[in-house]
Design a protein around this nucleic acid. Structure first.
Length: 299
DNA sequence: AGCCTTTGACCAGCG
DNA sequence: TCGCTGGTCAAAGGC
C-alpha cells in the first residue's frame, strides 16, 4: 500500500515538474512584456510555490524510495516464533506464532518463470505452503510459504510469492522473511534459477544513506496503471551497476543519461532523477527502476 | 502415518 | 470506533 503512495507521489512529482517547465516558458514570455509587472510577479510567485512543493516531495519521496541500510536497527524487531513476545496468548507444544501482523523487513526479489511454466523457479530451499490470499487489486492470489523444516527445527524462514500482473513476461515477486535457521543447504541454485539475480553481492554503491547493489537491480515487468515503463536492468558480473546503455531493446530511446556504460557514484543521482524511480522497500532488496511511458521516446 | 495443499476463519494493524 | 485488509491458523482432504 505504501508502494502505491510512492507511485502516486512520483506521478505528482512528474506532473509538477512538467507544470514548472511550462511555467518557466511562460515566464520567459512574460519577461518580454516589461510593462506587465503584475504578470511577472505572479509568475515568480507560482514558480516559487512549485519549487517549495517539489523540494518537499522530492525529499520525502527519496527517503522512502531509497532504503536506509542503517534503518533495521531502528525498525521494529522481528517477532520470532521461537521467542514469542506474548507467551500467554496460547499454550501449546508448538511455538506460539502470533497472528499479529508482523512488521517484517523482507528481502524482495523478482524472478521470471521458465518458459512454458507458470510457477516461479525454485530457489533452492524446501518450502511448505501454509496459506493463500487474494490481495486487493492483484490479479493473482499471494501464496505464503514457510520453511519445510519449520516444525522439526523451528526455522522461522518464510516467503511470499506474488505472480506478476503482466502476461507478456511471466514473473513473480518473491518476498523472503526471516533467514533460515535450520541449516538447510541450498540445492544447486544456479541451475534452478532462470531469474536474473541471486548471487552473493560483494559490490555495493552508496546513494545517500541507501545502498544499491548490482544484484538489486533487476528487470521489472509490471507497474500500477501502466503509468510507468519499468525496467530492471541486468548486470554484467564484473560491473558494480547494471549496464545502463538504456534501452536494451529499444533504439528509439536516446537519453544521454543512459549512453554511458556504468554510472559512477556521482552520476547516480542524475541517473535517478527526475523521471526514473528507484524503488526499494527493505535493505538488500531489488530496486525497481521506472520510467514514464513518454520518457524521451522519439516520435 | 506423515506430509502436503487447500481454504475458510481468525485476528491485528491501519486509515 | 469500525470496517477493510493482509498474515496466519488449523481443519479437512489428498497423496
Amino acid at each position: 500500500m505504501g508502494e502505491n503512495n510512492c507511485w502516486v507521489r512520483q506521478v505528482v512529482i512528474t506532473e509538477l515538474t512538467k507544470g514548472k517547465e511550462f511555467l518557466l516558458q511562460l515566464q520567459k514570455h512574460v519577461e518580454h512584456m516589461k510593462q506587465d509587472v503584475c504578470l511577472q510577479y505572479l509568475a515568480t510567485e507560482v514558480l516559487s510555490s512549485y519549487d517549495k512543493v517539489l523540494s518537499l516531495l522530492n525529499g520525502s519521496a527519496l527517503s522512502s524510495m531509497i532504503n536506509i541500510k542503517a534503518a533495521p536497527s531502528a525498525a521494529p524487531q522481528l517477532e520470532s516464533p521461537q521467542f514469542p513476545a506474548d507467551n500467554s496468548a496460547k499454550s501449546c507444544d508448538r511455538p506460539s506464532i502470533s497472528r499479529k501482523r508482523k512488521i517484517v523487513s523482507r528481502r524482495r526479489e523478482y524472478v521470471h518463470a521458465r518458459s512454458g511454466e507458470e510457477v516461479p523457479p525454485e530457489d533452492g530451499y524446501s518450502w511448505r505452503k501454509y496459506g493463500q490470499k487474494n490481495i486487493l487489486g492483484a490479479k493473482y492470489p499471494r501464496e505464503y510459504y514457510r520453511c519445510a523444516r519449520n516444525r522439526s527445527s523451528n526455522c522461522a524462514a518464510t516467503k511470499m510469492v506474488q505472480r506478476s500482473e503482466t502476461e507478456e513476461s511471466l514473473a513473480f515477486e518473491v518476498s523472503y522473511g526471516e533467514n533460515h535457521s535450520c541449516g538447510q543447504e541450498k540445492k544447486n541454485q544456479n541451475e534452478e534459477l532462470v531469474a536474473v539475480q541471486q548471487t552473493k553481492c560483494d559490490h555495493e554503491i552508496e546513494i545517500g544513506a541507501g545502498e544499491i547493489s548490482e544484484f538489486d537491480i533487476l528487470e521489472m515487468v509490471s507497474t500500477p496503471n501502466n503509468l510507468f515503463d519499468s525496467d530492471f536492468i541486468s548486470t554484467p558480473a564484473s560491473s558494480p551497476l547494471p549496464d545502463t546503455n538504456y534501452p536494451h531493446n529499444d533504439d528509439s530511446l536516446t537519453d544521454p543519461l543512459f549512453n554511458h556504460d556504468v554510472p559512477d557514484k556521482s552520476s547516480v543521482d542524475d541517473f535517478i532523477s527526475p523521471y526514473a524511480q528507484w524503488d526499494s522497500h527493505d535493505a538488500a532488496v531489488p530496486y525497481k527502476l521506472s520510467f514514464p511511458h513518454s520518457y524521451n521516446k522519439q516520435e
